[in-house]
């Protein structure tokens, strides 16, 4: 399209060099969005499976891949299975959370993790633009929050 506007279109090119399916951007966009809906809908129907809880075993396996030099000593497991936290030998903390059918890990040096305690749960504040806020509800969550963030500031 821009070549034509610049008067430089291939002299032998046919009308099909217009970068569009129908020639109308709005209609093209609607067709594309309908196709996206169809593909996503089919993926949902065919691969529909509720994600299982994050277990200690799954977290340990994932950490062994993502952070092979991390040595977990203590575990904190969310009772809803949303996330698992582990403290390493050097006081560093690893977090394993669920995203759809997959797991996401983050590792923090001792003292670098931003957490606070709220109603007995441990709340993890995003550490980077690709993370999200996480809440871990488990026995001992408040103690973990106080240990990681003694100041208790939100």
């Amino acid at each position: 399209m821009w070549l034509r506007l610049q008067g430089l279109s291939n002299p032998t090119a046919s009308e099909t060099d217009n970068k569009s399916m129908t020639g109308n951007l709005l209609i093209d966009s609607l067709i594309s969005l309908a196709a996206i809906a169809l593909m996503v809908g089919l993926a949902w129907v065919v691969f529909r499976a509720p994600p299982g809880p994050v277990t200690q075993d799954a977290a340990a396996e994932r950490l062994a891949f993502d952070e092979p030099d991390f040595r977990p000593q203590h575990w904190l497991i969310d009772r809803e299975g949303r996330a698992v936290m582990a403290e390493g030998a050097g006081g560093d903390i690893a977090l394993v959370s669920r995203l759809g059918l997959d797991l996401v890990t983050r590792r923090f040096p001792a003292g670098a993790m931003r957490v606070f305690e709220e109603d007995g749960a441990l709340v993890v504040r995003p550490s980077d633009p690709g993370s999200r806020r996480l809440v871990i509800e488990a026995d001992g969550a408040a103690e973990w929050a106080r240990k990681i963030n003694p100041a208790g500031a939100k």
Partner: peptide
């Protein structure tokens, strides 16, 4: 001389069909 069809636009329906085939 060579002509340049807009092959990406032509391919869009094929993308859709191939994704459906791959899902199944």
């Amino acid at each position: 001389e060579f002509e340049y069809p807009d092959i990406v636009s032509y391919a869009v329906p094929a993308f859709l069909v191939l994704v459906i085939i791959e899902i199944i």
